[in-house]
Amino acid sequence: MTAAKTVRLFKKSFRKRWQLYLFMIIPLLHITAFKYVPMFGNVIAFQDYSFERGLFGSDWIGFKYFKQFFDSPEALNTIRNTILISLFTLICSFPVPILLAIMLNEIRSQGFKKIVQMVTYAPYFISTVVVVSMLMFLLSPHTGFVNPLLVKLGMEPINFMGESQFFRPIYILSDIWQTAGYSAIIYIAALAGVNPESYEAARMDGATRLQKIRHIDLPWIMPTITILLILGAGSIMSIGFEKIFLMQNPMNTSVSEVIPTYVYKVGLLSANYSYSTAVGLFNSLVNMILILSVNYAARKISNNSLF
């Protein structure tokens, strides 16, 4: 199609559909202002940015801040912590919703199913601040039910939140508690689409329930699993800031300092705008490479991919 033809086609469409284009004007301006402006704002990573001189008046300094980050002792530590927390979270949390959905799919009683679903969704709707404070109360040596239980069993009370070795397990277990039920929805929806004739045929052949799960259910939800795994692996470097930041205390920073919390501290609290943008930009670049390569690998291996 030539450019002139495209323009003519667009003009014709615009005359007929101007209202639809009108709908999109404000949302597209919003996307431009709050997604594209900050995206291009990332260039301050290559500048000695100061707010007074602005984006166009600041000096260009190239990769100085990237180098400064990699030469600092924090680089290795924050990158390692980020990867370890995400990777363990992915490995531990990923299978749980799948198991939950498959078990729910075997349940005939609709009432029981509804109760299980309603209860397991609930934590998803609780705020991060509340979840972290719940952890602090329930696991503290003085309040909650965990330590009193340990004492009753004849053990010493443990200050769970104060010891760095417990940081990752607490983070991951509370993550499973919070998201497993809600994440199961997508698998439950996929399982509802299994052709009933396959079950009928399996029943005729005398298949056990376990065999039905292995040979009908699992292959059926495999594409969903692949896509969600791609998304999960791709977001290994984009760990959430909110929960880790709240769970941080002086006793656990050695394992809990991750790239986003570091960016926040050096960037906003100590106003090193350019340096912390450089760190953030490095993080998103790794992220992008990760998601694209996992996607490529998934397409090669199983023909399922995101794009």
């Binding site: 402006v37 704002g41 301050i44 960037g267 998103s284």
Partner: peptide
């Protein structure tokens, strides 16, 4: 595009 490339904390704050 905005799903793959984000703005980052500081650029967003400055915007």
């Amino acid at each position: 595009v905005t799903l793959v490339i984000g703005g980052g904390l500081i650029p967003m704050y400055l915007t």
